[in-house]
Write a protein that binds this DNA or RNA. Structure first.
Lengths: 336, 336
DNA sequence: TTGAAAGCGCTAACAC
DNA sequence: GTGTTAGCGCTTTCAA
């Protein structure tokens, strides 16, 4: 920067002003400085700038289980978040971590990032208390049990599941089963808040129409989807429709049903919820599905943090976005 | 740090020594300092540290088209890279960008990152010259036409395609078509080096057995895969086997064939190359496939950069990894 | 084995 | 509108 200043015949303060647009500078000087910068290929030193202003332009994307969600919706979240951050002049660092709370602590204390976006939020999320205490701006993609006083954007699973159930009930289905996912080996292990809310919405809806819920779960793979089918058919032969919140198992379920001679949608209706359309198109018939608003959620989540960095007094966005219904051919009235 | 020093009754230099392990410190002082750090929840300021030592612990993952590859193998690359970087004490920032060369320039000049990993490398990649000039350590996942003097790790597409072709030829197939992908609207737009090499390996193999290559391509979606089928059957009715390098179209192709009454593998053999096993399991029959060594490639790519950061004189790793053959049920001898 | 102090490159308050 | 300058928090050389 010193060099640029000499080259342009001004002081380094002036260079700083034009680099940051912090202060009015006469057009002539501005031009001179810019020319000098171009000539010398100057770009401001990131660390020095961050140190001096006491703030960085880096955001952290905290995603505890980057291993999970090896495709589909998860990828969408990450790429959109990175894109949006860059659009707004921020960088996005990926922070997949093991030891939740303590790792967040040191991330915060190191002042590496100006804010954080949390994905895969749990009902009682260990990262949240640490973040709140620290005062670091953050937003949730998802929400904890009590998200009061935080910025969050989330899928409106309640409405989405209720809507999906209504569709099925409207067609005459009464025995509707629900399939979601387990992570790793321990079925009781960390549970995403969204999954819990969705499941509860299903249970409530079933109860409200006097039906009894049928809950199934399996790991997020097509193989597990296939295997699930025999269990389903054996234990619940009267089920006529499936609501599946398990992007990667859904195609497997269709294959499993076909192998068992169960036709979709004539004998069994299926709706895949919170998926990408691509995943829904891997089967024949194409799955009727609802699309998780991943792109918007990422954008809003990133925006929420950046806005709060710029003005901590801003109201906290708390936004619920519905899944979009997308057509498919896997739903029909039940065989009477 | 000053506070920690006072708390422990030592100088800030000493604190720095224990934080970084840069110098021998007596066990007692060490213990005192560590206790003080814990008590005050100290973590070193990232920017200040980077500024003082003239180096950061951040790596950039340069992926021009994060939009593409919305799942499967692409996701694998990113998550594994982030994981590995963290394991080795580095952070990974995502750098999806538009304007290739210039964006790289400013990334370099800003000294934000200590090194870079390039994905989706093209034969003549605009990012590479900028990087070479700058002296910033970097590695390629993939390789340019002439990757001499650079660190790279790549899939051995030559061997993989040749192996795949041999399998098919060995079964008696002679009319083997090849399907790969187009990006966006312009079929001539930026081409990944790996795709070009793979295609050439196919062409060479066909020629070497006196066959004439049949090249097809479509966007990376199951819909496009379905549509491709009618073109294939109309234009090349005598084809008995398909080598598909298009992870997301492959399941669509199977569906399209089924719809056209072409049985897999009796009437048509299919091998999906460079895919994830999950994608290959979305169809019935499960696709015979080869798995892209994404995980290892990411690890090696990240390691290569970090090693060179630590010692620029280290020999340049230039590593070719084969795709792993994975079983499936979509290959059989041709109908005689 | 420990401490003092000179920067690292930039920002921004203050003076002109 | 532009320049001077005191830090930002840490690393590291040099001296003790």
């Amino acid at each position: 920067m010193q060099e640029v200043a000499e080259h342009a015949g001004v002081s380094i303060a002036t260079v700083s002003f034009v680099v940051n647009g912090t202060k009015r500078v006469s057009p002539q000087t501005q031009a001179k400085v810019e020319a000098a910068m171009r000539e010398l290929g100057y770009a401001r030193n990131h660390a020095a700038s961050a140190l001096a202003r006491g703030r960085t332009d880096i955001l952290a994307l905290l995603s505890p289980a980057l291993e999970r969600n090896l495709s589909g919706t998860g990828m969408e979240f990450i790429t959109r978040a990175a894109e949006r951050a860059l659009q707004r002049g921020y960088k996005l660092v990926l922070w997949p971590f093991d030891n939740q709370a303590s790792s967040v602590q040191s991330l915060i204390a190191s002042r590496l990032v100006a804010g954080a976006v949390l994905m895969e939020v749990e009902l009682h999320d260990a990262r949240v208390p640490a973040l709140r205490e620290s005062g670091l701006p953050f937003s949730l993609i998802g929400r904890t049990l009590d998200p009061t006083g935080m910025a969050w954007v989330d899928v409106d699973f309640d409405a989405s599941i209720v809507g999906t159930m209504k569709d099925l009930l409207g067609l005459g289905h009464r025995r509707i089963a629900y399939v979601d996912f387990v992570l790793g080996d321990d079925p009781e292990a960390s549970v995403f808040a969204g999954a819990v809310r969705a499941r509860n919405a299903y249970i409530d809806t079933m109860r409200s129409v006097g039906g009894s819920p049928v809950l199934l779960r399996c790991p997020e793979t097509p193989w597990d989807g296939r295997h699930l089918v025999s269990r389903l058919l054996a234990d619940h032969p009267d089920v006529t429709a499936l609501v599946v919140m398990n992007e990667h198992a859904a195609p497997g379920i269709v294959l499993g049903l076909a192998a068992a001679g169960v036709r979709v949608p004539e004998d069994m209706s299926i709706i895949s919820v919170g998926t990408t359309s691509m995943m829904a198109a891997f089967t024949d018939p194409v799955l009727t599905h609802t699309v998780s608003p991943a792109r918007e959620l990422s954008r809003l989540g990133v925006d929420a943090v950046i806005d709060r960095i710029n003005d901590p007094e801003l109201p906290l966005p708390q936004i619920l976005l519905p899944c979009m219904r997308a057509s498919g051919e896997s739903v029909a009235p039940p065989r009477s």
